[in-house]
Design a protein around this nucleic acid. Structure first.
Length: 488
DNA sequence: TGAAATGTTGGGGCG
DNA sequence: ACGCCCCAACATTTC
């Protein structure tokens, strides 16, 4: 019997079966789909031409495992390959005599380039290659200003998005699938374990395991939990890092375990319940809107992670020999508790609360005068939600070099921000345990406490916890002086 | 999706 | 009783 020619679903950052148009497109009677994931070892294959960080790799491992289990329970299989997709995809199609390959789009320049080359190769070989929008509410090129150009300001961008017809209803996951036997002429497969994505010695991932459930089911559960239990507090509490009032969906979105369409529709459903729900949904969806805006910016500015959107920042006098300060920031040892708590949360859990990201980023850029790209790179390496669009766009936003960005003179005061958004210091105490017993009045400025008081709390500044590496007022003046140079 | 400096106002203590 | 000063509270401007 002649082998049935399968269609190939090339999965990438869309590790889900629900609302996945590439999966849907491959479900054709008589042509069972082959589900393939490729670990691209070539440099060009990675988003922004750089490897993913170890936290992201941990997530990838578990997300792949979850997807493999989902496919298995439906009678199918996830096949993993390692190498260059430009070789592997055509080789797979040839080995299986596939007539159809489908994937959902990515938006970083390197990825777009690879995908369009592969599409031409396949098309030239008489194979239908189809790409879909799986990761965004709106394709970046479909949202235009009145004059037909891309948006550079968030509010009108989001308004234009909302004026478009609502996103399509999410697609259902396939129920029952048929596994395609592997072909001996096809490239060699590897197991998830063989990919070696998990750190071994030391295994520092206990914090990650505790905080997260990677995979489609975990993503959906997170969304339901958020809408059912936290939504009504979202507007009031989303800026309080000690409160579990954010959605924490970002890494699930990064890996495509859930789509923004699913989120949008579920949120609309919840919004219909009450005026209060609707108002909170509005706030929440505008954060999804910022993600859309970031992708819009990335698509129209492929160098977003490397190049200032505002060229006047190209000559900014960043401190280039500040490796000691950079290191203190990375390790959460700046002496400013809210900043240190954020960077330690990042290393421990692979994520940082959004409010604290802004404070920590502002501190690196404005207090330490270190190039925002250094911070962008660190976040890329350590965040489980490291995303080529969100990360780059947000760093440029804080730096003031981006689109619709905070002006450079908007300098967060880490003490006031701490007191405003972590008034009892719960967040600091959790992630900076050496300050756990510090009186609340000084939790964000321990260097101003009486020595006896600190002693009682077991704190010896400069020994158990650092003294501030820069003085806020001085650093602020220095940054404002640098701003003047920028104008000249 | 700031902070700090500066300006304005109004209540209350006080001579 | 009144004006003066102080200063908190709030508003505006500037960085």
């Amino acid at each position: 019997m002649a082998a049935i020619s399968p269609s190939i679903v090339w999965l990438r950052n869309d590790l889900r079966l629900t609302d996945n148009p590439a999966v849907q497109a491959a479900i054709v009677p008589g042509t069972p789909p082959l589900f393939v994931y490729i670990v691209d070892d070539s440099d060009k294959g990675r988003a922004q031409g750089r490897p993913q960080g170890s936290a992201s790799l941990w997530w990838l491992h578990h997300s792949l495992a979850a997807l493999a289990a989902d496919l298995k329970s439906r009678g199918s299989r996830l096949d993993i390959l390692r190498g260059d997709p430009a070789d592997l995809i055509p080789a797979l199609a040839a080995a299986f005599d596939a007539k159809h390959v489908a994937w959902t789009r990515r938006y970083d320049a390197a990825g777009i380039d690879i995908d369009s080359r592969i599409k031409s190769t396949l098309t030239a070989a008489g194979i239908a290659a189809e790409s879909f929008n799986g990761q965004l509410l709106r394709e970046p090129w479909t949202v235009k200003t009145k004059t037909g150009g891309p948006f550079r300001v968030f509010t009108p961008f989001w308004r234009a998005c909302q004026a478009l017809p609502p996103p399509a209803e999410p697609l259902r996951a396939p129920r029952r699938l048929t596994a395609v036997p592997w072909n001996r002429n096809a490239p060699t497969r590897v197991s998830i374990q063989e990919l070696g994505l998990l750190p071994t010695k030391p295994d520092w991932t206990a914090g990650l395991r505790e905080a997260w459930t990677p995979g489609e089911a975990g993503a959906r559960q997170r969304l339901v939990d958020f809408l059912d239990n936290a939504l009504l507090r979202y507007e009031n509490e989303r800026d309080l890092p000690s409160r579990p009032s954010t959605s924490r969906l970002s890494p699930h979105l990064t890996f495509g375990e859930i789509s923004p369409r699913q989120i949008w529709h579920a949120a609309q459903h919840t919004a219909a319940k009450s005026a209060a729900a609707a108002q909170n949904v509005d706030k929440f969806l505008s954060e999804i809107g910022w993600r859309e805006f970031s992708y819009h910016l990335l698509f129209h500015n492929p160098d977003l992670a490397r190049k200032n959107l505002q060229a006047r920042f190209d000559d900014f006098p960043w401190r280039t020999r500040a490796s000691k300060d950079l290191r203190a920031w990375q390790q959460g040892m700046t002496g400013y508790p809210i900043v240190d708590a954020g960077l330690r949360e990042l290393r421990q859990t692979g994520i940082m609360h959004n409010r604290v990201r802004m404070i920590a980023a502002s501190f690196l850029i404005k207090h330490l005068l270190i190039d925002w790209r250094e911070g962008e790179r660190w976040f890329w390496d350590t965040l489980v939600d490291a995303d080529p669009a969100n990360n780059a766009a947000s760093w440029q936003w804080v730096a003031g070099s981006g689109a619709d960005a905070a002006p450079f003179f908007r300098i967060f005061n880490p003490i006031l921000q701490g007191e405003k958004f972590d008034p009892d210091g719960d967040y600091v105490r959790r992630f900076v345990p050496e300050l756990a017993d510090c009186p609340s009045a000084f939790i964000h400025k321990p260097w101003l406490a009486q020595k006896a008081e600190l002693q009682k709390a077991g704190i010896r500044l400069g020994e158990t916890y650092p003294t501030p590496i820069v003085d806020h007022a001085e650093a602020r003046e220095r940054a404002l002086a640098a701003l003047k140079q920028l104008k000249d």
